[in-house]
């Protein structure tokens, strides 16, 4: 009998790409549940649509590229992109907008670059930014959290998504919007006048719990060693530091630290977006820099820029810079006195 012949090692750890991806999806559940609670059935519709479209696009492109469809669908990377995009888009978004988003995420940002592992940018963030620039009105209409208004019923929601019929009184400003739009007020005024803050516990009504949910999921992923702590901690630390430095309570002031940390896409970004290994820096040192720069950019755009939130832009900007960071954070190899960069000539 002839036994199989293969290269060592013959033992393998039990982790797999599928498992990593599924764990990430699993970890979004607390945040997603909070979103469903506060923003209603629209979140579920979003997720259903993104998952359907993304997997559909993935399968279609794989078919066109003559790749085994089952094999690649089973790595669940399209599922992760779909879930992240679904959570990032405003609930009750029109279906065609989601369709366009999924197209950009899967077809343009991922498969056109060569599929999983080859995409320089985070697909979900590409889709988000494309939609934000193309359809600013729809993209800035967030539902008001449940404690500030009524949530649409399922039929209302479906009508809204598929026919575009407006529903009265469901939308409202997000905490970051509220801050941006009230430039003449001091922080204390904002907190007492704006219901989104006055009804809140520590950051913004509803949003604080959504962010807390994603934080919880992120900690779960850290515990499961799906990624290292470097990038998220660095991003949150820089964001917090910046908001402390620029906080003075006046009308020019930055939002308070907790508002920054627990509003918008901060936690989703910190634990689910910037930890995407494909498009981030590789080494731990590189990830510290990568995360820190994102934190800085998020603050700069939120505070000085025109957009209320900035996670997507910051992530894409730093995706650009990831290879550059990698180049300057080459670790020192065993037996070498200093790191050797790839551009240096070797004597053969």
């Amino acid at each position: 009998m002839s036994f199989i012949s293969q290269s060592s090692p013959h033992a393998h750890a039990t982790n797999s790409t599928q498992r990593v991806m599924l764990t990430v999806v699993l970890a979004t559940i607390p945040g997603a549940l909070a979103m469903v609670y506060f923003f209603g059935v629209g979140v579920i519709i979003n997720l259903t649509l993104t998952i359907g479209f993304c997997l559909g696009f993935e399968a279609a492109v794989l078919y066109l590229r003559k790749r085994p469809i089952g094999f690649y669908l089973k790595d669940f990377s399209a599922l992760v992109t779909a879930v992240l995009l679904g959570l990032a888009l405003p609930p009750y978004s029109p279906w065609w907008m989601i369709f366009v988003g999924c197209f950009f995420a899967i077809v343009v940002a991922k498969q056109l670059y060569g599929g999983l592992g080859f995409n320089p940018f985070n697909p979900a963030m590409i889709a988000y930014v494309v939609l934000l620039i193309s359809f600013p009105v729809q993209m800035t209409q967030w539902a008001a959290p449940v404690n500030l208004g009524d949530l649409p019923s399922i039929s209302e929601a479906l009508t809204k998504v598929f026919t575009g019929t407006a529903i009265d009184g469901y939308s409202g400003a997000t905490p970051l919007d509220a801050f941006k739009q009230s430039e003449s007020l001091t922080v204390a005024d904002i907190y007492s006048q704006k219901p989104i803050f006055s009804e809140a516990f520590f950051a913004g009504a509803g949003w604080e719990w959504v962010n807390a949910g994603f934080l919880l999921g992120g900690l779960f992923l850290l515990w499961r060693k799906i990624f290292t702590w470097h990038a998220p901690v660095s991003m949150l630390a820089v964001l917090a530091l910046m908001s402390i430095i620029f906080y003075d309570g006046s009308s020019e002031s930055s939002a308070p630290v907790l508002t920054h940390l627990f509003s918008g896409a901060t936690m989703l970004g910190a634990f689910f977006i910037i930890t995407d290994p494909v498009s981030s820096a590789v080494s731990n040192k590189g990830r510290l820099i990568f995360g820190g720069c994102i934190g800085l950019l998020v603050f700069l755009i939120r505070h000085f820029g025109n957009y209320p939130d900035a996670v997507a832009f910051s992530v894409l900007l730093m995706n650009f810079a990831a290879p550059f960071i990698d180049y300057y954070t080459v670790p020192r190899s065993y037996g070498h006195s200093k790191p050797r960069r790839a551009t240096e000539k070797v004597d053969v």
Partner: peptide, 15 residues
């Protein structure tokens, strides 16, 4: 010398 592994991740993989 060792052969490079058959590149199945890019062309056709069998599951």
């Amino acid at each position: 010398t060792w052969e490079k592994p058959a590149s199945n991740s890019n062309i056709i993989a069998t599951d």
